[in-house]
Computed example of a mutant assay.
Amino acid sequence: MTKRHLSADRAYRDSVQPRTGEVRFQVAVEQTDLLVVAEADMRHEMAAFVALARGEIKTWIMFHPEFAASLTPVHVPDTAPDIIRAMAGAAALCGVGPMAAVAGAVAQAVAERFVARSPNLIVENGGDIHLCSTRERVVALLAEPDSGARLGIRLEAGAFPVSICSSSGTIGHSLSLGSGDLVAVRAKDARLADAAATALGNLLRGPGDIQRVLDRAAQLAQCGLGGVFAQCDSKIVAWGDLELVALD
């Protein structure tokens, strides 16, 4: 699941099939639209929690509009809400604005709040995913329209929690200053993965920029970035802790 080939109705979600003992449901609160796979349907409790998280973010922005507008890191005080400080911290590490981490921040906040009730819990927020699992998972990356090839990232049973977040300069509604087809980032922390995907996506403006992306990824590895997948035109590269698998 990524922003690659993301349509307005999020039709890519149709391919997500829960395993035995799991259910799939949607949580929609204003502009936040989550797909959740869990061991129980918790949509109402999650919706209430998302509303609270959104309220904290919206209230902060009301009094600090630069938090939403800035494309560069913004300092926030230690008294700011946890989700605000987490977004700002991840953005500072990656050199982007704090809203670059908002989707990952919400996904991780929901997962952390409810994982005690469902050890197998996947929260997808517009192509950014935070996963908690007791078993191996495969996250689909993209479908090549010309060849029909489909790739995924295999996540071993002992890897969780883990996040896969993506950025695209050609697909989806999220702001990207690059023009590459896809950058997907693996990290333990969804806020970092989300901000890093944006930062690396901004660098990818052509196939010749792949090495710049890899060099920056190596720097961010010191902050917790685990792996990167990047595609621009016909050039594809994977770096770090990524096991790519072909999907049927």
Score class of each variant (00 low, 15 high):
V110C: 07
V110F: 03
V110T: 04
V110A: 05
V110Y: 04
R113E: 12
V115W: 09
R117K: 12
S118V: 11
S118C: 13
S118N: 13
L121P: 01
L121Q: 08
L121N: 00
I122D: 06
V123Y: 01
V123I: 06
V123E: 00
V123A: 02
N125A: 12
N125P: 09
N125F: 08
G126H: 09
G127P: 07
D128A: 10
I129N: 05
H130C: 12
H130V: 11
L131G: 07
C132W: 14
C132S: 09
S133V: 09
S133T: 10
S133I: 03
T134E: 13
R135G: 09
R137C: 13
R137F: 06
V138Q: 09
L141M: 06
E144S: 14
D146L: 15
D146K: 15
D146F: 15
S147H: 07
A149T: 14
L151W: 15
L151A: 13
R154K: 12
R154P: 03
L155Q: 03
E156D: 14
E156S: 14
A157N: 07
A157F: 07
F160D: 02
P161T: 08
P161E: 04
V162P: 00
S163D: 03
C165Q: 02
S168R: 09
T170L: 13
I171Q: 14
I171H: 14
G172V: 14
L175C: 07
S176P: 09
L177G: 11
G178W: 04
S179G: 13
L182E: 03
L182Y: 05
V183I: 12
V183Q: 04
A184P: 04
R186E: 06
R186G: 03
A187D: 08
A187T: 10
K188G: 11
A190E: 06
L192G: 02
A193E: 05
D194G: 03
A195E: 02
A196G: 04
A199M: 05
A199R: 07
G201P: 00
G201Y: 02
N202G: 04
N202E: 08
L203F: 01
L203Q: 02
L204T: 07
R205S: 11
G206I: 11
P207L: 09
G208P: 00
D209M: 11
D209S: 13
D209W: 08
Q211V: 15
Q211C: 08
Q211A: 15
R212E: 02
R212T: 11
